[in-house]
Computed example of a mutant assay.
Amino acid sequence: MAHRLAGSSLFLLDRKKLWMSAGADWLRLGDRWVDTYRLRTIKVTTGVGTYHLELTDSAGNKLDTQVYYLQKNRALWDLVYNGILHSITYNHADVNRRAVNHLHLQAVIRNPPTGR
């Protein structure tokens, strides 16, 4: 995986003992990763008392985790959020309404989706 490491951020998810890391254009959780600048779908769902972020990139790579775990590390979240904004603006990624509301994406979504 030849990805840029500039501006990367790394931390351990205590609950699952999985490493989460992000670089300029990628997010990795354990052995799964997505290209955050080439996202095809961005979806927020609800779990038991928490929100989950589900990301799928243009190559079909999928990753999902609790939003809280990403936002726990500000530098990591900034990298992921920038990729999300880029994917919406330039790649016209599909975004569900819950993602628009929970991730405060109203400024980049001109016509918010009506479904979940």
Rank of each mutant, 00 (worst) to 15 (best):
Tyr51Asn: 09
Ala75Phe: 10
His52Arg: 12
Asn73Pro: 05
Asp57Cys: 04
Trp77Phe: 07
Ala75Val: 12
Arg32Cys: 04
Leu53Gln: 09
Val67Ala: 10
Arg40Phe: 06
Val80Trp: 01
Leu53Asn: 03
Thr41Gln: 11
Asp35Asn: 09
Gly30Cys: 06
His52Ser: 06
Thr65Pro: 03
Asp64Arg: 13
Thr36Asp: 03
Arg74Val: 15
Leu70Lys: 05
Asn73Leu: 03
His52Asn: 14
Thr36Arg: 01
Gly30Ser: 04
Lys72Trp: 06
Leu63Pro: 03
Leu76Gln: 08
Gln66Leu: 04
Leu70Tyr: 05
Leu55Gly: 06
Thr46Asp: 14
Thr50Pro: 00
Gly60Pro: 06
Trp33Ala: 03
Leu39Asp: 05
Asn61Val: 01
Leu63Val: 03
Lys43Val: 10
Thr65Tyr: 09
Leu39Trp: 08
Leu63Trp: 09
Leu79Gly: 14
Tyr37Gly: 05
Thr65Phe: 02
Lys43His: 13
Lys72Glu: 13
Lys43Phe: 04
Tyr81Leu: 04
Ile42Ser: 07
Trp33Thr: 00
Tyr81Pro: 02
Arg74Trp: 09
Arg40Val: 08
Asp31Lys: 14
Val48Ser: 10
Asn82Phe: 06
Asp64Lys: 13
Asp57Lys: 09
Thr56Gly: 02
Arg32Leu: 07
Glu54Cys: 15
His52Tyr: 15
Leu55Ile: 06
Leu53Phe: 07
Tyr81Trp: 02
Leu70Gly: 08
Gln71Lys: 08
Tyr51Val: 00
Val48Glu: 09
Asn82Gly: 13
Arg74His: 15
Tyr68Asp: 10
Thr45Met: 11
Arg40Ser: 12
Asn82Glu: 15
Tyr51Ala: 04
Gln71Met: 11
Lys72Met: 09
Val67Cys: 10
Gln66Trp: 00
Trp77Gly: 02
Arg32His: 06
Ala59Asn: 12
Gln66Met: 01
Leu79Lys: 14
Ala59Trp: 11
Ser58Trp: 13
Ala59Met: 12
Lys72Pro: 04
Thr50Val: 11
Trp77Lys: 01
Lys62Thr: 11
Thr65Ser: 03
Asn73Met: 04
Lys62His: 05
Asp57Gly: 06
Thr41Asp: 08
Leu39Pro: 09
Tyr68Ile: 11
Lys62Ile: 02
Thr56Ala: 13
Ile42Thr: 06
His52Leu: 13
Tyr68Trp: 13
Ala59His: 12
Tyr51Glu: 08
Val34His: 08
Asp31Ile: 12
Val34Thr: 05
Thr36Val: 02
Ala59Leu: 15
Gly60Gln: 00
Val67Leu: 14
Asn82Thr: 11
Thr41Trp: 13
Lys72Gly: 02
Thr50Tyr: 10
Leu55Tyr: 07
Lys43Thr: 12
Thr56Phe: 07
Val48Gly: 00
Val34Ile: 00
Val48Asp: 10
